[in-house]
Design a protein around this nucleic acid. Structure first.
Lengths: 216, 216, 216, 216
DNA sequence: TATGAATGAGTATTCATTCAT
DNA sequence: CATGAATGAATACTCATTCAT
C-alpha cells in the first residue's frame, strides 16, 4: 500500500522511518501518534511522508503489517527450533516462554502489538487487526493440528476453542507485564521474563484438562 | 472525585451530561473524546464542565467508575436470580447469556467498557482499570468459591486460573460481536445475542474439562 | 473604595482575604492574578469578592493602598527611632538598612511593591502608583528637609534631585535582591540583608559628594 | 533561538510580524500579549507563528533581543558622533538628550523596553533582562572608562556606583514621560523631548558633585 | 522526488463577572 | 448578605494535509 516511492528509498532511510514510527505509534497509538514528530525524529521532511504513504492510516497500517510480519517470522523460527519429542505441555510452555522473551527483547514490536490491540476505532482496527490475526493463526493452527494428529492433544478437544484460547493468551502474556490493569489476579505486571515463567507454568497447569490426553 | 458542584446538580442535567459523555468517550476513547463536543451536545457551557470536574481525566475516570458500578450492580442482580440448583455448566451458560444480553441492550455501557479496555496510555489505564477490575472480581470470585465449596467445580481446579479465564472471557464475549478483529475464529462479530448463544455453548463445552468434576 | 459590606466584615476574614490577595497579586501581578484563586484560598465564595469590591481593579487598588500604608507606617516608626545626632551619611545608611531588613522580613509587602512597580498598564499603574508615591514622599521629604535645615546636607544640593534619587534607590534596594536583572553591576541578587549592607555602604559612599557638606 | 524557518522568511513578512509583535508585547507585556492578536494583525495563520518560534517565551525573548540590539546599535552610533572635546557634563547631557529623543521617536522600541523592565515573573525576566543589560553596559562602561582616563571624571569616583546610576537613570528618562507614577517629583510625565531637556539639565547639575573633578 | 511553509480547525483549560437563590 | 452555578470568549499550542518550489 505504500507508494512506489517508498520502496525505491534506500534501506537505511526506510529502516529509520520505520523504527521512529514504531516508537511513536507504539507509544501513543494511531490517533495520538504524530506525523510531525515522526518526520522530525526520522530527519525527513513532513511532506515526504505523504510521498511515501497516501495518508496517516495507510502509514499506520503499513507499520502494523510490517511488525506483524516480523513477529511472525521470528516466532515461526523459534517454534520450529523447539523439541517436539516432548509432551505437548512442555512444548506449549516453551512456546509461551519464547513468546514472552521475544516480547521482552523487542519493546518496539511489543508496543505496536499493543497499539493495534488497544485501538478503539473500528474502522482503523479492522484495517489493522485482520492481517495481524492471519499471521498469528498461520503459526498457531498448523501447530495445533500437528499435535492433534500426533496424539499429543486429547482427541475430543475443540480445535476452535483451543485456538481461541491461544489467541487470548498470547496478547495477554505479551502485554500484561507492561500494561496496567490487564492482570489483576496473577500479577504479571512488572515481572521479568524469568519471573513470568512460574506464572506461565501455573496457567498451563490450570488449563491442562482442556488439552491433556486423559490417563496420561 | 467530581466537585461538590456536580453532586448538587439536578438529576436531569447530571444524567444528560453523563449520557452524552458515555457516548463521546465510549465512541472515541479518552484522548480523542472531545470535551467541547460533550458540552455542546449536553447543552451546557464549556466552562461548566470544569465546575463539575477538575480536568478531563477526572471526568473520564468518573464516567468509567459510574459505568463499572452500574454494570456490576445489574449483573449482580441478574446472577442472583439464576438457578443454582442446576450444574455449574448450565449456570455458567446462563451467566454468559445474561452478560451478552446486558451488553447488547446497553450500548453506552458496552462502549465505555471498550474505551477503558482499549486505552493504551498506562497512566490513564491504571486510573480506570483497577477499579473496574475490582468490580468484576467482587462478582466473579465469590461465585466461583461458592460453586467450589458446593462441589460443582472439580476440586483440583486452580481458582486463580479459573478467575483469569473469566476475566478474559467476559470482555471478549461483551465486545467481540461489536469490534473488528477480536474474534477471527468463532466469528462472533455482528451476531445478535441469540446468535451468540451457540458460540457460548461451544466455548463452555470446549473448556468443560477445566472445571468439570471428573466422572460426571 | 471597597463597599460598606467589606468594612462590616469581621476582622479575621478581612485579614485572611487580604493576606491571600497579597500573595496572589504579589506573585502574579494584577492581570495574571486570579480572583478565583483568591476566593478559593481565602475560603470565601467567588461572588462574595464582588460584594466587597466592585471589580478586580478596585480590589487590586485596595490591596496596594493597604500595603503602602503598612509599609509607610512601619518605616515611619523605624525612622523615628533612629539616631539623628550622627552625621547624615550614617543616618542614611541606617534608613536603607531598616528598609532592606523590613523588605526581607515582609515578603508579601515586598511582592506587592513589586506588583505595583512592575505594572505595565498605565490605566492600572496610575490608580496604584500615585498613592504609593505620596506615602513615600511623606516620609522622605520631611526628613530631607529637616536634615537640610540642620545643616547635615550641603546647602546647594537640589532637594528635588535628592528626593528623586531616593525614589529610585528605595525600590532598587528593596527588589534587587529578589528579582532577576535589576542589578547587573553590584550583584545584590540573592543576598541576605547582612550581605546587602556593604553594598549599601558602597552606594552611599559613591554618592557622598551629592549631599556631603564640603570640607567635612 | 527562532527556528530556521523564521530566518528563511522573506524580509517583508518578517518585518511585519516583528513590528506587530513589538506593538502587542510592548503594549500589553508578555503574559497579556496575545499570539492570536499578533497573528491576525500580521496577516498570518495562528499556526505559522509556531513554525517560526517554538513557544511564546521564545518569541517574546527574540523580540526583546532584537529591540535591545537595535537600540544599542543606534545609540552607539549617536554617541560616537558626539563631541568629546567638551567637558564630561556637556557630553552626558548630550547622551541623555539623544537617548530621550530616540525614545520619543521610537515608540515601539520604547514600549518593548518597558515590557521587559516591567516584567514581574522572574523566570521570564531573567531570560529577557540579562541580555538587555549586557547591551547597555557595553555602551556605558567603555564610555565611562574613557572619560575617567581622560580625566573628565573625578579620580575617586566609584565606577560601579556611576554605572549603576546610569542603569537607573536611563530607563527612568526613557519611560517617565510616558508611564504614570514613575516620576512624582520632577514631573517628566507627558513632556516632549524639548520639555524634558531642562529636567535633564537639573538632574545632571544635581548629581554634578558625584563625578565633577573638584576645583573645575 | 524532496522540501518545508502555510493553514485553520482543533485541543484542554482559565477567567472575571452575573445573578438567582 | 453569602453563595456558587453558569457563562462564553479567551488562552497557548498541535495537527494532518496541501502545494509551490
Amino acid at each position: 500500500m505504500p507508494t512506489s516511492t517508498w520502496f525505491r528509498l534506500n534501506v537505511g532511510k526506510r529502516e529509520r522511518v520505520l523504527e521512529v514510527a514504531m516508537r511513536e505509534f507504539g507509544g501513543l497509538g494511531y490517533s495520538s501518534g504524530s506525523l510531525n514528530t515522526i518526520a522530525r525524529e526520522a530527519g525527513i521532511a513532513k511532506g515526504s511522508l505523504f510521498q511515501y504513504f497516501n495518508d496517516k492510516l495507510e502509514f499506520f497500517a503499513y507499520v502494523c503489517d510490517e511488525v506483524s510480519r516480523r513477529i511472525r517470522e521470528e516466532m515461526q523460527r523459534r517454534i520450529d527450533a523447539l523439541d517436539v519429542a516432548q509432551p505437548f505441555e512442555g512444548w506449549l510452555f516453551d512456546v509461551f516462554c519464547e513468546w514472552t522473551e521475544y516480547m521482552a527483547e523487542h519493546p518496539l514490536e511489543r508496543a505496536m502489538l499493543a497499539a493495534a490491540d488497544f485501538e478503539l476505532d473500528n474502522s482503523i482496527r479492522s484495517v489493522v487487526r485482520d492481517t495481524a490475526n492471519q499471521h498469528y493463526l498461520q503459526v498457531i493452527s498448523p501447530s495445533l493440528r500437528a499435535w492433534r494428529e500426533r496424539g499429543g492433544i486429547r482427541g475430543d478437544a475443540d480445535p476452535d476453542v483451543l485456538a481461541s484460547l491461544m489467541m487470548m493468551l498470547l496478547p495477554f502474556l505479551a502485554l500484561a507485564p507492561y500494561y496496567e490493569g490487564l492482570d489483576p489476579i496473577l500479577n504479571l505486571r512488572g515481572r521479568t521474563p524469568a519471573e513470568q515463567r512460574p506464572v506461565i507454568r501455573q496457567l498451563i497447569a490450570g488449563l491442562r484438562p482442556v488439552y491433556a490426553v486423559p490417563g496420561t
